[in-house]
Amino acid sequence: FEIPDDVPLPAGWEMAKTSSGQRYFLNHIDQTTTWQDPRKAMLSQM
């Protein structure tokens, strides 16, 4: 499912887009990137 862009990312995360428009996520805390939206895990725990 798609999460609306107005749902905030967890602390330390940033959303970016590739030149082709694909979204990816940067974790500044552990210096990693992922295609997986970290908000999905956050919302599934609620």
Rank of each mutant, 00 (worst) to 15 (best):
Phe1His: 01
Phe1Ser: 10
Glu2Cys: 10
Glu2Arg: 08
Ile3Gln: 00
Pro4Ile: 15
Pro4Arg: 14
Pro4Ala: 14
Pro4Leu: 15
Asp5Gly: 08
Asp5Lys: 10
Asp5Tyr: 06
Asp5Leu: 06
Asp6Glu: 10
Asp6Phe: 06
Asp6Tyr: 09
Asp6Ala: 07
Val7Cys: 11
Val7Arg: 09
Pro8Thr: 11
Pro8Lys: 06
Pro8Ala: 11
Pro8Val: 07
Leu9Ile: 07
Leu9Pro: 09
Leu9His: 03
Pro10Ile: 00
Ala11Arg: 13
Ala11Phe: 12
Ala11Met: 14
Ala11Lys: 14
Gly12Thr: 01
Gly12Phe: 07
Gly12Trp: 03
Gly12Gln: 05
Trp13Arg: 03
Trp13Gly: 01
Trp13His: 00
Trp13Asn: 05
Trp13Ala: 04
Trp13Thr: 03
Glu14Tyr: 03
Glu14Arg: 03
Glu14Val: 04
Glu14Ile: 06
Met15Tyr: 03
Met15Glu: 15
Met15Gly: 05
Met15Cys: 12
Ala16Glu: 06
Ala16Gly: 07
Ala16Trp: 03
Ala16Cys: 08
Lys17Val: 12
Lys17Gly: 04
Lys17Phe: 15
Thr18Glu: 08
Thr18Ala: 04
Thr18Pro: 02
Thr18Asp: 14
Ser19Lys: 15
Ser19Phe: 10
Ser19Glu: 12
Ser19Met: 12
Ser19Asn: 11
Ser19Pro: 11
Ser20Thr: 15
Ser20Gln: 14
Ser20Lys: 15
Gly21Ile: 03
Arg23Ala: 09
Arg23Thr: 14
Arg23Lys: 12
Tyr24Asp: 03
Tyr24Val: 06
Tyr24Ala: 02
Phe25Thr: 03
Phe25Asn: 01
Phe25Pro: 02
Phe25Gly: 02
Phe25Asp: 03
Phe25Gln: 02
Leu26Cys: 05
Leu26Ile: 15
Leu26Lys: 11
Leu26Ser: 04
Asn27Cys: 13
Asn27Thr: 00
Asn27Glu: 00
Asn27His: 01
His28Ala: 09
His28Pro: 05
His28Gln: 07
His28Met: 12
Ile29Asn: 15
Ile29Val: 13
Asp30Gln: 09
Asp30Gly: 08
Asp30Cys: 08
Asp30His: 06
Gln31Trp: 04
Gln31Phe: 03
Thr32His: 09
Thr32Asp: 06
Thr32Ala: 06
Thr32Phe: 15
Thr32Asn: 07
Thr33Phe: 03
Thr34Pro: 01
Thr34Val: 02
Trp35Tyr: 09
Gln36Arg: 13
Gln36Lys: 14
Gln36His: 14
Asp37Thr: 01
Asp37Lys: 00
Arg39Gly: 02
Arg39Asp: 00
Arg39Val: 03
Arg39Leu: 00
Arg39Tyr: 02
Lys40Arg: 10
Lys40Pro: 06
Ala41Arg: 12
Ala41Ile: 02
Ala41Gly: 14
Ala41Asp: 15
Met42Lys: 09
Met42Thr: 14
Met42Gln: 08
Met42Ile: 12
Met42Arg: 12
Leu43Gln: 14
Leu43Lys: 11
Ser44Leu: 11
Ser44Pro: 14
Ser44Asp: 08
Gln45Met: 11
Gln45Asp: 10
Gln45Glu: 15
Gln45Ala: 11
